[in-house]
Design a protein around this nucleic acid. Sequence first.
DNA 1: CATGAATGAGGTTTCATTCAT
DNA 2: TATGAATGAAACCTCATTCAT
Lengths: 223, 223, 223, 223
Amino acid sequence: MNEQQWLKELLQRNGEDVKLSEKQIKILQAAIEMFAEKGYAATSTSEIAKRAGVAEGTIFRHYKTKKDLLLAIVTPTLFKSVAPFLAKEFVKEVFESQYQSYEDFIRALLRNRYQFVKKYLPAIRVFWQEIAFHAEIKEQFQRIFTTHVYQKFKQIVEHFQEKGELTAIPVDSVIRMTITTIAGFLLTRFIVLPDYDWDDEAEMERTVQFLMHGLSKKDGWFA
Amino acid sequence: MNEQQWLKELLQRNGEDVKLSEKQIKILQAAIEMFAEKGYAATSTSEIAKRAGVAEGTIFRHYKTKKDLLLAIVTPTLFKSVAPFLAKEFVKEVFESQYQSYEDFIRALLRNRYQFVKKYLPAIRVFWQEIAFHAEIKEQFQRIFTTHVYQKFKQIVEHFQEKGELTAIPVDSVIRMTITTIAGFLLTRFIVLPDYDWDDEAEMERTVQFLMHGLSKKDGWFA
Amino acid sequence: MNEQQWLKELLQRNGEDVKLSEKQIKILQAAIEMFAEKGYAATSTSEIAKRAGVAEGTIFRHYKTKKDLLLAIVTPTLFKSVAPFLAKEFVKEVFESQYQSYEDFIRALLRNRYQFVKKYLPAIRVFWQEIAFHAEIKEQFQRIFTTHVYQKFKQIVEHFQEKGELTAIPVDSVIRMTITTIAGFLLTRFIVLPDYDWDDEAEMERTVQFLMHGLSKKDGWFA
Amino acid sequence: MNEQQWLKELLQRNGEDVKLSEKQIKILQAAIEMFAEKGYAATSTSEIAKRAGVAEGTIFRHYKTKKDLLLAIVTPTLFKSVAPFLAKEFVKEVFESQYQSYEDFIRALLRNRYQFVKKYLPAIRVFWQEIAFHAEIKEQFQRIFTTHVYQKFKQIVEHFQEKGELTAIPVDSVIRMTITTIAGFLLTRFIVLPDYDWDDEAEMERTVQFLMHGLSKKDGWFA
DNA sequence: CATGAATGAGGTTTCATTCAT
DNA sequence: TATGAATGAAACCTCATTCAT
């Protein structure tokens, strides 16, 4: 039972608990595992039913189509993926209190996303593997990203550029490099080389240092 | 005819020209386009045949199975993807003459891979989208990467660390950050936001600067 | 419904009733008819579906492959073909009570197998037509024949040779001639010339006489 | 080259040599082998071409359809199968000179057909395996059998019944038992148990004895 | 609410045959 | 004459979805 806790957490939004029957959870778990491994298109509903231990028809009682089942996995994952940026008070908190520097912010963000990926890895795999193939998912992601993540990220970066901590290269470049660096670490850590002998604390700190050296205002940037 | 030049180049190895009938090229082109767009599993051979303008049976005369068709696209792409590192004289050239600094090397590598991705984008998409789903492709990639790319990359990084240009953080971390940064740029440039108003020259130079500031030996790294 | 009785009987073993849905019976009936007529390889699953009045997919819900469908017909037929010899008490019964002579035994066997072929003719045709093409069927048959039929037949023949009823030629020859003669009659009667104006009682008795004259101990056998 | 002699002999009729190109012989050989092993319907023309070492198109240059190729094998085999009865002088020879008794006739027939089967086994397998599936072949066989074999066989049997050598049971029964017995031996010898440790001379003589004891006029037949 | 038999459209693959070379 | 690339119909089989129980 406890094993399914992560799934319930992934599916909840705004802290409201979602109601899922035993069978529904089994179905989602099976679907996530198989979609992650073989891909959505290469996984049959009968395989999912078998692994979930339910009848084929039961899947379609809960999810009208196979695609709905995918979206039931992918949509919550998308929201949780960018969750830090969805909180209303997020930017304010960054400015006013919590983070004294971009470095602090980055460090917190990296650690937060590290925990997130560690917890929900299979669902995240599904999300990123399928986003290339489904226009609806891509559009939903772009909408969320543009209206929530990008806007807020921009405010933060400009804030620290004005404070003189970050170089004056275009904000978009800073955002791109930041995201690319964080995502690059997590991808390598959890997908490309999960079996490598990682010293997570050290590598995360190295990643923060790399990013900050790369982005700090200092002599030499195009000098 | 000229349109297909890139395909012929992609398929050739060791400079030897590959022999492809008119129809074979049409099939490969159609397959690459559709696999890139919808994914291998979601693309039917009948669709490929239709787009290629051949009978469905013709596909199977040239490629015994649908999987063989995928591999005919993916294997050359894998080799071309890491081509710079496959050349015998590669490391020697880096040391002895061509590149005075890691920065020069990175700049050359980035430009080279930029041209590569620009030229072969659809095939590269197929490669990276499908590597997650096909164990054989993943294994082939790991074999090539470990024995060719990683070994040589390591020599190069150690060389410039000894020369005092790069920080003394673990070689693996340097390699990871380098690849991550380059790949992150190319991915954003060509896949995530291809329609953004890019100033390629400027962004590439910024990326090089970011990387070098991030990796250069200097006060502050863990100080 | 009653028409299908023979099929249910053919499929049952050890007297246990087999559970077959309406559609399954229709599929088996259609398959037997078509395999008998055109052969397994020349019969398509779509034809079977059409004749059975079911969707093609329904066949594959019940039988994973076309070959499985063949085996579902052929295996029970094989067992029923040699059924008399599979009964545990068979030899004992022959010796102790039922049959006073080889002639009685042969007569009973011939009549029994005559009824069997008459009842299950189409399935038997399938069995004998396909045994030449499928190694698994041939091997299964040889295993059953060697361990059950041959062993018991040998005991019986030796018994009546010792009693002086049968000539002293090699047991294997006696068995071969017996089987050959019985099978030859049934084959001619039901397959080669089913439309000939047969007097079954007379011809069976003639066949028994022919066999017994041919095999009885008497002056003249190699004398 | 000498290997193909049997094929040329099989194909010739009335002693006239048939003209066959090298490739045609290879095709026929390959077809006979594969039809014998897997059956006509389960053998593809491309397999035949491969085994024959010719291009697929070459088969269709010599035989308009796959069925024609089958008939090119089966028709000569049919004629050779009943060849002894096709000779014009056959009956006369039996009566006037060669065979003093039915036993002599049977012995000669059995030895003759034994040699025939030994020589042309693969083609004979094809003939008997396919006769069940192809109405044209069955009809051709029935025509030949009725008009040539049966007529002459009847004359012979009646001749020896009149001479008092054979019992007075119906001629058809005598013919059936004779053919059944001979065919039963050959089938067991060459198809069912070819690997058994046969003493051919002894078993053939036993078969003749069995047949003659079974058919001779004597006390006991229905007495 | 759950089941699983049934469907039929569509998937990959094979095949006999044709035809330009 | 011989080839083998090309065809497209049809083969076997899978699949998402429905629905009576």
